[in-house]
Design a protein around this nucleic acid. Sequence first.
DNA 1: TTTTTCTTTTGACCTATATCAAAAACTACT
DNA 2: AGTAGTTTTTGATATAGGTCAAAAGAAAAA
Lengths: 188, 188
Amino acid sequence: MHTPLYQHFEQYIRLSPALREELENRVTVQSFKKGELLHDADKVCTRSYFIRKGLVRVFFLKDGREISEYFSSEGEWVNSPKSFIQRQKDIYSIDTLEDTDTWRLEISDLGYLFDHFPEMERYARLSMGTVFGHLMERITSMRFTSAKEKYDHFRAVYHDIYHRIPLGMVASYLGITQETLSRVRAEK
Amino acid sequence: MHTPLYQHFEQYIRLSPALREELENRVTVQSFKKGELLHDADKVCTRSYFIRKGLVRVFFLKDGREISEYFSSEGEWVNSPKSFIQRQKDIYSIDTLEDTDTWRLEISDLGYLFDHFPEMERYARLSMGTVFGHLMERITSMRFTSAKEKYDHFRAVYHDIYHRIPLGMVASYLGITQETLSRVRAEK
DNA sequence: TTTTTCTTTTGACCTATATCAAAAACTACT
DNA sequence: AGTAGTTTTTGATATAGGTCAAAAGAAAAA
């Protein structure tokens, strides 16, 4: 039943039966229709969602326009990172681009797991290391690169899901206008 | 003697006497002259340096030019993150912009600390969370912003040290040319 | 199916920043 | 102090990508 979740953890640590059971008990199924909000920037983010099926987008408002920060899909956790970690409000909201099924974990439950299973701390450290690497690569790919190079990098990173994301959202993710992205895409 | 190092850890966890002692035993003083390499991209990064005094720059080569990735100064750890975490080569080298004194920690010693002190795992998770936030902010500040806005953000982030960094290195950090940065700076 | 709304493409024009080149201002040796 | 090397500034020009506007295409609603 919770196999994809276990597999995710086992990329980084070995799950003891006790930890498996705790995870299973503390995680709740929650589904969202396309366009629904998982998290609103108005509030502190107290939940993390593991995506079983679907696609979500983390975004914020700048001058009244929605800017995509990043996208998450099957097999990944999503939350508003700074809000979730530091228990304060942040600028990000999260909504879905497709009907999405998740397992939801409350921050209080996660705290319990950290306190009682040191391997969870290790899991967090290692998995953050992975994401960390992605962020640095992204920063590199945003400097001294043409719109085309940015788009190519985006397609490489979001290889499996880039075609499921509307053009305007991709453009704001890349920091270019959708007109420019449309032209870049045309010449191929 | 090791006070600044202890203080750094105690932003995130409480250091037991036992852990203090282990840290103290495993850390080695190392000093570098201005311009010396702390790490060369040719090699796997197996050491992390805590900066007691001085200023270093993490950079890589693109088309024969040196691009600054970021800077670190007093009270911070520096290494080549992906190389250090995943024990493989990466593009980054590290050198000093000033004479620099450090405490050096070998990855094997860090591994020992992770294995024997679960609070070290917690420290790593929490401190990575902080850096994580900075990276996300930086990504945001690089999209849809003018050269001037990028420079303003840089000065805010590197408030205490920005004046110690040569203009050309700041420009490559921001992803703009040094000519543009020079002009931005002139009109104030 | 038809209408309405949302998304993407195309076109014309403009501006911020890149590029190339050279002068000026620093820094660091001898 | 004087020379050589490096870094920063200034100037002239070019261009990628922004902005604004409108048409075309797709998706959702009636």
